[in-house]
Nucleic acid binder design. Structure first.
Lengths: 105, 105
DNA sequence: AATATATTTGACATTAATTGTCAAGTTTAA
DNA sequence: TTAAACTTGACAATTAATGTCAAATATATT
């Protein structure tokens, strides 16, 4: 079994599991089927709003799907970068620092 | 002492340490001083090319500066997101997975 | 205080990236 | 073999990023 699915794969699997056609889902999203097709094959990125709607339409956990979506957006930023891994680690450090110093003050 | 400097702060500090004016550095970058001023105050993002040039102009470590730059870009993507921290962790996991499965095959 | 120089600000122009449509092509399955 | 679902690629529209310019403000010097 595939342990690391792209958000596109998740969307397609769950759409098919529900027996929905591109046409059905894209109508609800108010976009052309072509885009949804591309999103499912990772040829295009969805917008945050589309992800949230898709979670509703396909009965998926919103938070979970959003985390997947954001993580792909992050990786997209560094996909061609030698130093991507280092940058990610530093980003996490900074994130910790930010969270530490932002409570009630 | 400040333990977590923004790239803008680093750039300004080092420019001033060298006794350079915005005008001097922005000329080398071939942009208006206004932009450099904004970059140094984190009001605008630099481009990757500008960062690399700045490292040369200010005698800073290229890799180090680039990592800082990329990490800020990453954080920028999730700055308004509740789930930012989770997304970062998931991105790191995916990154590991990618690196694992990309060696010589 | 007046002036000169450096920096900042904000309105706006240009360019580049993202998001979308459409129509024709391909695949899948009756 | 034809009908429906999906894919592809050229292009249009929209939005975001990057830049200029001129005026405003701050900082220094005389």
């Amino acid at each position: 079994m595939k342990e690391n699915k792209s958000i596109g794969e998740i969307l397609r699997e769950n759409r098919e599991k529900k027996g929905l056609l591109l046409r059905h889902v894209s109508a609800k999203l108010d976009i052309d089927t072509a885009i949804l097709s591309k999103i499912e094959r990772s040829e295009r990125k969805a917008t945050k709003e589309q992800i949230l709607k898709l979670a509703e339409i396909l009965d998926l956990d919103k938070e979970g799907l959003l985390v997947q979506y954001l993580s792909e957006k992050i990786l997209y930023e560094i996909k061609d970068e030698e130093l991507g891994s280092k940058a990610l680690k530093v980003a996490e450090q900074k994130m910790k620092y930010i969270n530490k110093n932002k409570s009630g003050n």
